[in-house]
């Protein structure tokens, strides 16, 4: 009888603990990185100079393209982005809040998906593939407006489950090489992986111009490349797993500022 009472009390206690954990996100999730460095820190001097060049940074070509698209009202009856949002400079600070929970879609959306959403529902365009040139250009142009601002994602009741999913993804082993993200990007950040210096894996410069791609690409493209590198099956562009991971990465990069368009290897 006594043992039954103790067991049931324990179960009740456990149940109440678990209920509390689901409802309340912890106030200050513990940071695992003691020193936070942007990917720029791990590039060569030549690459750093190219990123900081306000003319020659090749990513700025995509920003220019995005600016043209922003005010493009050539299609009859279709409002341009500028008609609703005004000058693109008013987008300053917007990118720092993404990924965010979108009530109308009832899930976490990143900025590219939000732009797609706007284009489809309010501008009546056909949906484009995630990595299409138009979406890339618009995303790069909008994120570029927040250059120099720190990340400001919200961790609340709605976004916390996604943050947990992202965190679990980051620390979960995967692929033939059975590696988790933290193995390279926390344990060995700064060390050489063949000819490459490992960074801490922040996404603060994306969409970024990668010398290897010879063009601008999204963070999802980079994540797919990482997955392929450890012989894991990559998710599709725009996958919910990557968007949750983006939220976790944005939180993890809290002390860093937006650098878009960054130049990386």
């Amino acid at each position: 009888m006594k043992s039954v009472l103790i067991v049931s009390l324990c179960l009740l206690f456990c149940y109440s603990c678990s209920v509390r954990a689901v409802e309340e996100p912890p106030r200050m999730p513990e940071r695992t990185l003691t020193e936070v460095h942007s990917g720029l820190f791990y590039q060569s001097a030549d690459t750093q100079a190219l990123q900081n060049d306000n003319f020659a940074n090749p990513g700025l070509l995509w920003v220019d393209r995005g600016l043209t698209l922003w005010s493009d009202d050539s299609a009859p009856g279709v409002p341009s982005c500028a008609e609703c949002h005004g000058n693109i400079s008013q987008m300053r600070g917007v990118a720092t809040r993404y990924p965010t929970f979108a009530a109308e879609k009832n899930r976490l959306l990143n900025l590219t998906q939000q732009i797609q959403e706007c284009r489809v529902t309010r501008q009546h365009h056909d949906p484009l593939p995630y990595e299409s040139e138009i979406l890339l250009a618009l995303t790069t142009a909008v994120v570029h407006q927040s250059k120099g601002l720190p990340f400001d994602v919200t961790l609340d009741k709605q976004t916390y489950p996604y943050w947990v999913a992202g965190k679990n993804y980051f620390y979960e082993r995967r692929g033939q090489m059975n590696l988790a993200c933290n193995h390279c990007h926390e344990h060995y950040a700064g060390r050489m992986l063949r000819g490459d210096r490992l960074s801490q894996g922040h996404g603060n410069g994306y969409p970024a111009y990668r010398l290897q791609w010879q063009g601008v690409g999204s963070l999802h493209r980079r994540l797919r490349f990482c997955n392929q590198g450890i012989r894991a099956e990559p998710f599709d562009y725009g996958a919910a797993e990557y968007v949750s991971l983006e939220l976790f990465l944005a939180w993890r990069a809290t002390d860093l500022v937006v650098e878009t368009p960054a130049v990386r290897r």
């Binding site: 590039q43 060569s44 001097a45 030549d46 090749p58 010398l211 010879q214």
Partner: peptide
């Protein structure tokens, strides 16, 4: 030219 190029795709 830089003495070392991390990536040969775009060297100043």
């Amino acid at each position: 030219l830089p003495a070392l190029a991390e990536n040969g795709n775009s060297v100043a």
